[in-house]
């Protein structure tokens, strides 16, 4: 059964080999009471691919990536992450969450723990590393996002940009196969946006599979392999950055881009 769906899904997204796809989303619906948030979403993300999802607010972008790690439950359709189907089985869900890292709009760092502990908590409490091993790993990651000197501070003592980089390090500490970004720069002051985007670019260059919901069109153009435009719970158009930004085919895409650019 699941294999069949898998094949179907791969055909739908224009002939990518299913072996390549790390995330397969097939015919997913989601509704909040009266409001239909996602309508028949079909999409694939290949390994090492960077997909940027754009669209007006309320278009279902965030809901879509929150379905991938089951922060929202989809009502119909199938989602596969690295070959594992998302079902209601809690072990299954936790397995998938271990493989997917997420960065939130509001950082959601743990305010009662130091920066170092924030990053180390995943490896220590989920992967079962010893305290010293987890902290060593955390320190490495903080160095990678260029804030090792903040390790002993608490999140509230950091700037927004620094906090978001800690959140990035925290997600990376689980050595995820996929990273999900839910509007990572929307809550930041303008002068801090670039430090976060730079860290994300570096991550993309290192070959991380990423799905990014963002309003940063410059980032999308520069880093994305594919851009997905969503509106009213549907995927309207998919293409390379130049296809979407320079010669959009759909009316809705054109209208959206003319409004924001």
């Amino acid at each position: 059964m699941s294999n069949e769906v898998f094949k179907d899904a791969s055909q739908m997204s224009g002939g990518r080999e299913s072996d390549d796809a790390i995330i397969v989303i097939d015919g997913v619906y989601k509704r909040f009471k009266e409001f239909e948030a996602l309508k028949n979403i079909k999409m694939q993300v290949g390994r090492k691919e960077v997909v940027v999802v754009i669209g007006p607010s309320g278009s279902g972008k965030s809901t879509l990536i929150r379905c991938i790690n089951r922060l929202e439950t989809h009502d119909a359709g199938h989602i596969f992450v690295d070959g594992t189907a998302l079902t209601t089985d809690i072990r299954n869900i936790q397995e998938i969450r271990r493989e997917t890292g997420m960065v939130f709009q509001n950082f959601n760092l743990f305010p009662h723990l130091t920066v170092l502990t924030n990053v180390a908590i995943g490896p220590r409490r989920v992967r079962g590393l010893s305290k010293s091993a987890a902290e060593e790993l955390a320190m490495e990651l903080l160095t990678r996002v260029k804030i090792p000197e903040q390790a002993d501070k608490f999140p509230a003592q950091l700037s927004g940009g620094q906090q978001q980089r800690v959140a990035l390090a925290r997600a990376l500490a689980m050595t995820p196969k996929v990273m999900l970004f839910d509007e990572p720069t929307s809550a930041l002051d303008p002068e801090m946006i670039n430090e976060v985007l730079d860290a994300m670019k570096e991550l993309a260059q290192e070959g991380m599979t990423m799905i990014v919901v963002t309003h940063e069109m410059g980032f999308a153009r520069e880093v994305a392999d594919r851009v997905v435009f969503m509106d009213k719970g549907e995927i309207v158009e998919v293409g390379t950055p130049s296809e979407i930004f320079d010669s959009p085919k759909e009316e809705r895409t054109k209208k959206f881009l003319s409004q924001i650019l």
């Binding site: 790690n69 089951r70 922060l71 936790q94 397995e95 969450r97 271990r98 997917t100 890292g101 997420m102 939130f104 509001n106 959601n108 760092l109 743990f110 908590i121 995943g122 409490r125 989920v126 959140a167 925290r170 997600a171 689980m174």
Partner: peptide
């Protein structure tokens, strides 16, 4: 805030933890 539990879930922590 709800985001705290969500961040925990996203890391793969159990409800208990």
């Amino acid at each position: 805030p709800k985001g705290q539990a969500e961040a925990g879930k996203a890391l793969g922590l159990s409800t208990f933890k």
